[in-house]
Amino acid sequence: MNRIEQLFQQKREGVLNIYFTAGYPGLTDTQPIIMALEEAGVDLIEVGMPYSDPLADGPTIQESGMAALQNGMTLPLLFEQLAEVRRHTNIPLVLMGYFNQVMQYGEQAFFSKCQEVGIDGVILPDLPLYEYETQYRTMVEEAGLAISFLITPQTPEDRIRKIDALTRGFIYMVSNSSITGAKVGISDGQIAYFQRISQMELKHPRLIGFGISSYETFSQACEYSQGAIIGSAYIKALGAGGDIREITHAFVQKIRGQVSV
């Protein structure tokens, strides 16, 4: 069974998913970051494939991506690194990036390679549902991969049902209509949206992402979903410099509310 589906069978609340950009801060930090995140008790890791034109991302992820590309990160190198990482850990790994990167690698080749190196799922925010369903779904499913689609406060109910039907693994619930890293705090309007979705009794677990950055926002998100996703805040912490293991442990403890500082 797919590691992501396995995770959600065992754990239905407080799932912590952390995103980082591969190749940032250093080209060879992929393994140290993943090992540190696992050791610190993160449940799921999203590995960002750095991209020149990340439309859905705010300045923090944009800048980490530019730095990673300048460091020399490429998709073939990342796959090499991940194959090595997989020999040391069993934590579920999700690759996140933009569809153009997949197209250039070759769609079939990309999904097969994911399977080969032990990636468990993919998130491609700009891959349209129709194109997925008609052209790529079979490839993804045959490779045994999970795939998450995004929903937002503006997504109509019938489309959410459709997304639920096409999802494998978890649904990515965007907390607010915004790019990543944009807003701080969770408003009453967002809570109403979380409640509305939670009452829909979808088949798949939901993780809330975008704007989750602290113990408070993480706990709030967890009240209305199976867990949450943190990206920009962790990248900022990494960007401040220092020992990756120490930064990661301190960061995860803070998010989990196990403050020891």
């Binding site: 891959l127 349209p128 997504t155 489309r159 965007v174 915004s178």
Partner: peptide, 19 residues
């Protein structure tokens, strides 16, 4: 009606832009 000229076009956008 999906916005393609031959194999070019379409709407490859993040869900946030969909509505």
């Amino acid at each position: 009606d999906r916005g393609y000229y031959g194999r070019f076009g379409g709407a490859y956008i993040p869900e946030m832009l969909y509505p």
